[in-house]
Design a protein around this nucleic acid. Structure first.
Length: 484
RNA sequence: CGGGGCGUAGCGCAGCUUGGUUAGCGCGCUUGGUUCGGGACCAAGAGGUCGGAGGUUCAAAUCCUCUCGCCCCGACCA
């Protein structure tokens, strides 16, 4: 590896200092940077372009499953936020308050939304009268503010971007069905297919669920440092908010009933996941489906042939542009080698080199970011080859991540072994749990590992075992890990 | 919010212990020229409220107090 790493002068070693590597990649790849405001980052054009591609993939799925976008206010009056007791208690420590408008002190202070259940439910109570008004299936793309004590680029910032869905249903079954539909058809499908990140799916424990929800489903992704990141959540709110906000409808049977609700969200945090799942010593590695630039053309410009090479590069760009996101790096002041490294750091999936030798032979050179594999392609086969290779890269990234995930799930039945594994190997541990919050808490205190989720698959694990902590007989097998 | 570390040119750092005239180095940047298939080279230049505020002193990047920010490890979270 020695010689390989010599190329990377700008970022810390992923092997030796993962945290610093992460920060370096985010900044040097120009995804984001710090700002004069504590805990708030700027998402730079390259990073924002990535986010836009991610938004498009999510938005498409959200709409395909019958939802519409809307936009609700940034501010939430304190009285509304306080309606649902568990909810306000959960968010209280991290709410930012507006107490003054201009020179006037406000009669009632307003929260800058830490999430929008309260404001949206207050409107739903106005909108819902009859069973014919249901369901309501809305999503909003918005910014959120949570006054976090410790922040990290993309992973935890004071202000962040997300989408939050808020739905209202007639029956409990319908709400549960919605919660699961979002989990699988929207989130899992998007994260695995577009981001090439495999996820572990399941239900959160009481301790870990959303404040105010009946229960929370989650998608957990494993980062290459062995810690997991919650990639998305889908909550079945039951009737908690319906009762707090008085959302009732008159049913066909002439009975007045409370509605059943869900909410669900994913955030710009997914960008952090992308970095930490696929990145390597040389920087970012972006899945082609969401990469802002899928093909970067680097012309090899000798004095005598510069003009012809550039013309050909433009011609190729024009052809590829109909199907792919492609750019030319024709900057005079950098050598090809420098450009190769720079675009690798930025994670561009495919590099296309074209020089005088290629010109004379009607070919170009293609190089994969994920494997380093290099081939020459005849010009007439370029379009199909690029398409094929982008697909292969997407699939390879997914397969690599999947392999890493599977290698790092370990079933453990002895608590001492648990401690050793979590400390030395990290990753996910599958173990039986008695269901008591006490055991969950003790394990977290002693090992820093939390229960990430209770997986769905009871079928194949219908056996029983002993709680990893107290030894009590249990049929609940759960995933533990240290998390971001 | 507790423990630790850091803050000096765009980036990475030296100088601080033991205060002293003009604050250095590498990369980057500007100009000119030669280059270009894996981070090119030569020459000449530009660039600093030493994170901020206050204090000690004839004199502060250096000593003292306060403060802001970032990173790491904990408690909290998407």
């Amino acid at each position: 590896m020695g010689k390989e790493t010599e190329f990377v002068k700008e970022i810390a070693s992923k092997e030796k200092d993962f945290s610093q590597w992460y920060v370096d990649v985010v900044r040097k790849a120009e995804l984001a940077d710090y700002t004069p405001i504590k805990g708030c980052m700027v998402i730079k054009p390259y990073g924002y372009s990535l986010w836009e591609n991610m938004q498009a993939g999510l938005d498409k799925r959200i709409k395909e499953t019958g939802h519409q976008n809307a936009y609700f206010p940034l501010f939430i009056p304190e009285s509304l936020l306080k309606r649902e007791a568990e909810h306000v208690e959960g968010f209280a420590p991290e709410v930012a308050w507006v107490t003054q408008g201009g020179s006037q002190k406000l009669e009632e202070r307003m929260a800058v939304r830490p999430t929008s259940e309260a404001i949206i439910c207050s409107l739903y109570s106005k909108w819902v009268k009859s069973w014919r008004d249901l369901p309501i299936l809305l999503n909003q793309w918005a910014n959120i503010v949570r006054w976090e004590k410790v922040t990290r680029l993309f992973l935890r910032t004071t202000e962040f971007l997300w989408q939050e869905g808020h739905t209202v249903h007639r029956t409990a079954e319908e709400a549960e069905e919605e919660t699961l539909k979002i989990l699988f058809e929207v989130y899992q499908d998007f994260i695995e297919k577009e981001l090439a990140i495999p996820v572990i799916i399941g239900r959160k424990t009481e301790k870990e669920k959303f404040a105010g929800a009946l229960h929370t489903y989650t998608l957990e992704a494993l980062m290459t440092d062995g810690k997991v990141l919650q990639a998305g959540t889908s909550h079945n709110l039951g009737q908690n908010f319906a009762k707090a906000f008085n959302i009732k409808y008159l049913d066909e049977d002439q009975q007045e009933k409370y509605v059943w609700q869900t909410s669900w969200g994913t955030t710009t945090r997914l960008i952090g996941a992308l970095v930490m799942v696929h990145g390597d010593e040389r920087g970012l590695k972006l899945p082609p489906r969401v990469a802002p630039i899928q093909v970067i053309i680097v012309p090899i410009m000798f004095d005598k042939t510069k003009k012809e090479v550039l013309e050909k590069a433009e011609e190729i760009k024009a052809i590829l542009k109909t199907n792919f996101r492609v750019e030319i790096d024709a900057r005079d002041e950098y050598t090809p080698g420098w450009k190769f490294n720079a675009w690798e750091l930025k994670g561009v999936p495919l590099r296309l080199e074209i020089g005088p030798k290629d010109l004379s032979q009607g070919q170009v050179v293609l190089v994969r970011r994920d494997s380093g594999e290099k081939i020459t392609v005849k010009e007439e086969r370029l379009g199909e080859t690029v398409e094929e290779w982008l697909d292969k890269i997407q699939e390879n990234l997914r397969a690599k991540a999947k392999e890493f995930l599977e290698e790092n799930i370990r079933e453990v039945s002895d608590y001492n072994e648990f401690k050793v594994v979590i400390e030395e190997k990290k990753g996910l541990i599958k173990a039986y749990w008695c269901g008591k919050g006490d055991c969950e808490e003790k394990i977290k205190e002693e090992t820093k590992a939390s229960i990430r989720c209770i997986p769905f698959e009871p079928g194949e694990n219908s056996g029983t075992g002993r709680c990893i902590y107290c030894g009590k007989e249990s049929s609940t097998l759960v995933y533990f890990a240290r998390a971001y």
